[in-house]
Structure formats: structure tokens, C-alpha cells
């Protein structure tokens, strides 16, 4: 239940406290990294735990034996460990922040997508699903995502992670310009 205030000055000052500077949010993630490295002795990451969940999701389709026999899932088994709980925490933290800042809203088609590709829900959801497949496949092949490689690996000055960043950003920029900019 969201109530909107009509008092402009209130909403402006309120929005000021909600809109953190990106530098402040980034510094916060940096400090969080110190704590996570020191306390649980592992970097912040997402897709290792996601591949453990994919092992669980595959069991109904491939059978428990086939999943256990898979050489990749042998190293990333379907277990409820720290990393998987971290994923739940990430979702909940964003949910709490959105709720408390009154920014929670059901979104199916974001405005930048709508401006380029129109109001079709099926189109957006198909793209999200396909993009999700590629994102995860790429992350697992590279050994990490924007969190595990980009931030955690980047801050450790790992060669692999800086190669990841140096390839991922230009490819993403090229893809965005090819797909989002209308031909003149």
C-alpha cells in the first residue's frame, strides 16, 4: 500500500535521503567486502550459488542420478549453504530498501525498453528469459559475474577479473548500441 504525499517540499527532502550518491553506495559495497572477506573468508558472489540452485532445478528434468553424476554439479552441489542464503538476503535487502523508500512497484516493461521495443509484454519477458540464459552461461564460463569477477575479483587486482571487465563492458556497449539505437 503506497500513499503519495502532495507536499512537494516534503517529497523532495524525502527523496534526498532515499537517493544515495552512487559513490556512497559503491563505498558501502567496498566496506561490506572488507567484512565479508574477514568474517566468512570468501568474496561476494552470486553465480556459484545460482549454479547450485540450477542443480536443484534440474533434478525433476534430468533425474537425481544424472545431476549427481554431472562433473560440474559435483563441485557445485545442490546444498543450502552460506552462498545460497546470501542470494535470499540480496533479494530481501532490496525489497526492504524499496519498501521503506516507497519505491516498490510492479514493473513488467521499463521505460527505456518501451521507448525502443514497444508495449508487448511477451516480447520483454522473452528477452529477459533469453538474456538470463546468456548472462548465467557467460558468467559460469568466465568463472564469475559482475559481483564475483567485477567487484570482488577487481578489488583483489586479479588478472582474470580485469580481463572480464575489459571484455564485458565494450561488448555490452556495442550490443546496446546495436539493439537500442534506431537506424537512421
Amino acid at each position: 500500500m503506497v500513499t503519495h504525499t502532495s507536499d512537494l517540499s516534503y517529497s523532495l527532502s524525502y527523496s534526498h535521503t532515499v537517493d544515495w550518491s552512487p559513490y556512497l553506495a559503491g563505498a558501502g559495497i567496498g566496506v561490506l567486502s572488507w567484512i565479508v572477506f574477514a568474517v566468512v573468508d570468501q568474496p561476494i558472489g552470486i553465480t556459484t550459488a545460482l549454479s547450485q540452485l540450477s542443480a536443484g532445478a534440474a533434478i525433476p528434468f534430468l533425474g537425481s542420478d544424472a545431476v549427481s553424476a554431472n562433473s560440474y554439479w559435483a563441485g557445485n552441489p545442490f546444498v543450502l549453504d552460506y552462498g545460497v542464503i546470501f542470494l535470499a538476503g540480496t533479494l530481501l535487502g532490496a525489497f526492504a530498501s524499496a519498501l521503506l523508500s516507497r519505491r516498490f512497484h510492479i514493473e513488467t516493461i521499463p521505460s527505456v525498453w518501451r521507448e525502443r521495443f514497444g508495449p508487448s509484454v511477451a516480447k520483454r519477458l522473452s528477452a529477459a528469459f533469453l538474456g538470463g540464459i546468456l548472462t548465467m552461461f557467460g558468467a559460469r564460463l568466465a568463472g564469475g559475474c559482475t559481483s564475483g569477477h567485477g567487484i570482488s575479483g577487481g578489488l583483489q587486482l586479479a588478472l582474470s577479473s580485469w580481463v572480464f571487465l575489459a571484455v564485458m563492458f565494450p561488448v555490452g556497449i556495442a550490443t546496446a548500441h546495436l539493439t537500442f539505437q534506431r537506424q537512421a
Partner: peptide, 27 residues
Amino acid sequence: LGASIFGVGMVIYGYCPGTGLAAIGTG
């Protein structure tokens, strides 16, 4: 190779894995 596939996928999805999970929480 992985970073290239990831770069294409992230633009089509519109999120990376971490921000995608977090965005579910925002609706």
C-alpha cells in the same frame, strides 16, 4: 568468451545476476 556472452546477455536481460535478484525484490 564468457565475458562476451555475459556482455550480450546482460544487455538483453537488462540486469546482471546480482542486480537481477535484487530487482525481483523491488517488484
